[in-house]
């Protein structure tokens, strides 16, 4: 009898602790959400500020305390920004350089990764190790000599100079080689038996099977063109060949003081927009590419 009483009491005890546990659980969950939402608000704030500032009139922008929603949305800022920074030319240049360099870079990367993944040749391991070793060296070291090289070759101020020096990326080769290696070798041998040429096998089997990696590379490469600043400023800073980032900085040289911020923010928003669109539609590929790389665009 006493045993059953004990059991009942234990049961009550358990229920009590579980109720307390539930409350602490709810409280801690609430705390976690509060923290995350606060951090998310801080992370999003610059974007919010950029967009509402881009729609304000200059008078409204100078108000203190500021308005948190434009009294009257002034879309003409965007038109002003477009003409002030001649964004049309900049968009065109960046698209040309981005598309051509991505396309050529993909072809070179596919060939090189294929050779390292499937073909046999002397010194393969050594060569691949040497390639990987170059990834440790900071890009500035290359830039100095490359600047001299392109000056001697007399190709500064052209699209070529913006495209050619960065066509080979050891990291992309590495990424694609890893992907190629996962494709079973039996497939390759079977194709050989059937008399399929290497080239045909590469394009009909390996490339389609590695599409996600190739898409990641494409996006990162395009983002790279969109965000590149140092090299374009050094070698092609003329209005006809200027790229978008460089052009933005050139058009709005003043960052402090009584600047026409609404127009400046409209230009910034226009430059950021394509990146956001890419992010919204292709987030999966960017995140998988980034988590394997750790390099920014």
């Amino acid at each position: 009898m006493s045993q059953s009483v004990m059991k009942v009491m234990q049961g009550r005890d358990l229920r009590k602790t579980s109720a307390r546990q539930k409350i602490t659980h709810i409280l801690s969950q609430a705390g976690i959400y509060l923290f995350l939402l606060l951090m998310a608000a801080i992370v999003l704030f610059p974007f919010y500020w950029m967009i509402i500032s881009s729609l304000k009139s200059l008078v409204e922008y100078r108000l203190s305390p500021p308005t948190f929603w434009p009294m009257q949305a002034l879309f003409s800022n965007y038109a002003d920004a477009f003409t002030t920074a001649s964004l049309g030319v900049l968009f065109k240049n960046t698209m040309i350089v981005g598309l051509v360099s991505t396309l050529l870079s993909l072809v070179i990367t596919i060939f090189t990764a294929f050779a390292f993944a499937r073909l046999q040749f002397k010194g393969k391991e050594l060569l691949f190790a040497a390639l990987l070793a170059t990834m440790m060296i900071p890009g500035e070291l290359f830039t100095i000599t490359n600047y001299a090289t392109v000056t001697h070759l007399n190709i500064t101020g052209t699209y070529t100079v913006l495209i050619v020096p960065f066509l080979v990326s050891v990291f992309y080769i590495y990424l694609l080689r890893q992907n190629f290696l996962q494709i079973p070798n039996e497939l390759y041998l079977a194709a050989k038996v059937d008399g399929t040429s290497d080239m045909k096998y590469l394009w009909k089997v390996m490339v389609p099977l590695s599409l996600p990696t190739l898409i990641s590379i494409t996006i990162l490469k395009m983002m790279g063109a969109w965000n590149s600043y140092i090299w374009p400023r050094l070698v092609a800073n003329d209005p006809e060949h200027r790229l978008i980032t460089n052009g933005l900085r050139n058009a709005f040289t003043d960052t402090t003081g009584d600047v026409n911020y609404p127009v400046q923010m409209a230009a910034v928003a226009l430059v950021s927009l394509p990146l956001f669109l890419v992010f919204v539609f292709l987030r999966k590929y960017i995140m998988s590419g980034v988590s394997r790389s750790g390099i920014k665009g």
């Binding site: 402090t256 923010m265 950021s272």
Partner: peptide, 14 residues
């Protein structure tokens, strides 16, 4: 992550 560091730097300046 998917931002242009010059462009958003200008927002921070503002």
């Amino acid at each position: 992550y998917v931002t242009n560091s010059i462009a958003i730097g200008m927002v921070f300046a503002a």
